[in-house]
Design a protein around this nucleic acid. Structure first.
Lengths: 142, 142
DNA sequence: TATTGTTATACTCTATAACTATA
DNA sequence: TATAGTTATAGAGTATAACAATA
């Protein structure tokens, strides 16, 4: 009375965990020459997505804890990659912006991310690659 | 001379991070009534994928550290959900198997995972859902 | 009264290495 | 000599709450 004789397929959540894990491992390799950790590079990438944003916006868009963001930005600021500036309208808030050195490094991080994506999707046809990226983005938006 | 005036699209790696994050959050909600953490539920799901496996196989298939696996299995064993049995041919290895209580709870975890997948993919058509799952699985295999 | 960012704290996770018992 | 599992330990990350300044 085995009603499920076929090998069970891993749930989508499990598959997505492995997918992210694999991408993160490849990214770590690409990042090694830059002397950056995944987490710091991720924050730089997120800062690069918007011209200017507060720590709060960064915390929301990355889904990390705000106290963790404080420490990460402390580290990036100590390396001269980002600056916390006065927010034009809200004196509580900090505007997080890239320094010239940060912009330069960000360009390298973006190149590393592109190389990572290319390596990670080398099993795909160009059409599959686009489709997967599109569907993943739609999935994230919910 | 702006050669990239369109809003930059997040790299696939970043998107996959968010995709996994979102699925994990929904899974946490579904798991709450079961009194299980994501991590422990994930190990149960992985144990459920194969009839019998060693700790080493579990470590490899999950991509976690072996010392972390020791602690997780200690916790699951203390709750009476799994047992470490003698391996039939290798006396160094432990065969990790589910207890009856573990099998019962696994069934509930699998149901929770299915509900999670359904909620997470509610923005998709059935065709997109299948396609995304298939492409993600192919991506993982590399 | 709520929000932004900071600090403090305890807890968990990770990474590393050493150790044992087997192979 | 290499592998499976365990233990120990230090470092990083996470979650929580409390706090000051500002809205």
């Amino acid at each position: 009375m085995n009603e499920n004789p076929a090998p069970r397929r891993a749930s989508l959540g499990l598959v997505l965990r492995h997918a992210h894990l694999r991408a993160a491992q490849l990214f770590t390799e690409e990042l090694r020459p830059l002397g950056l950790e995944n987490h710091h590079a991720g924050v730089l990438l997120h800062i690069g997505l918007l011209e200017m944003q507060t720590q709060r916006q960064l915390v929301d868009s990355m889904g990390v804890d705000k106290s963790a963001m404080v420490r990460t930005l402390d580290a990036l600021e100590a390396r001269g990659l980002v600056r916390r500036e006065a927010h034009p309208t809200d004196r509580r808030a900090h505007a997080v912006v890239l320094t010239p050195a940060g912009q330069e490094l960000l360009a390298q991080v973006e190149a590393a991310a592109e190389r990572t994506d290319a390596r990670a999707t080398s099993c795909f046809t160009p059409e599959e690659r686009e489709l997967f990226h599109d569907l993943a983005a739609k999935f994230v938006r919910g």
